[in-house]
Simulated scan of single mutants.
Amino acid sequence: MDVLTIRAAIERGDWPRIASFPFPNAESTWAPPRRQLSTIRPDVRLVVVKGHFFPSKEYGEWDSLPVLIKADIDQLKALILTSAPEFQMIT
């Protein structure tokens, strides 16, 4: 599960660190591209890549990309708990 959160939430203790695994390189720290769905402007198709928004026509892909999940902290916690059985256990 790829999740983006603000660092302040981690520093406040909202997201306790349970493990730390180094990334092999800077490129791998980014989540895969996601498509942004807008209920206000469904005609505007944006792709989120490395923290930046690109029009889908410029990026060249849309339908095959996973949806960018928007959630507040409580919704995100619920999503993580619901998805937990799907997580790979690292021992």
Rank of each mutant, 00 (worst) to 15 (best):
L46S: 09
P32W: 00
K57S: 13
L4M: 09
D74C: 08
G60Q: 03
P66R: 09
G60I: 03
S20L: 13
T91F: 07
D43W: 07
Y59H: 10
I69P: 02
F23N: 09
R45I: 11
I90G: 00
F54A: 10
G13C: 02
L46H: 06
D63H: 13
K50H: 09
K70V: 12
G51T: 02
E11L: 02
R34Q: 10
A84L: 04
P42W: 04
A19N: 09
L46E: 06
F87G: 07
G51H: 02
I10E: 00
F53T: 10
D74P: 11
L68A: 14
I69N: 13
W30M: 00
K50S: 14
K77L: 07
P33K: 08
E86R: 04
K77R: 06
V48W: 00
W62T: 06
S83C: 13
F23C: 12
F53K: 12
L76M: 06
R12H: 09
R45W: 12
P42K: 07
E58P: 03
D72Q: 04
V67M: 15
P32Y: 06
I80N: 05
P33N: 09
I69L: 15
Q88C: 12
V3P: 09
R34S: 14
E86K: 08
D2F: 14
L68M: 15
L79Y: 14
V44D: 07
F53W: 12
E61F: 04
P22A: 15
P85Y: 03
S20Y: 00
L65Y: 05
T5V: 07
P32K: 14
Y59S: 13
R41Q: 02
D63N: 15
A84M: 04
S28C: 07
S20T: 14
G51Q: 01
F23Q: 00
I80G: 04
E27V: 01
G13E: 08
Y59V: 04
S20K: 00
D2R: 11
I90A: 13
I69A: 15
Q36C: 12
P42L: 06
P55T: 01
W62K: 07
F87H: 07
V44A: 09
T82K: 08
A31M: 08
T39D: 10
Q75R: 15
L79S: 14
V47T: 10
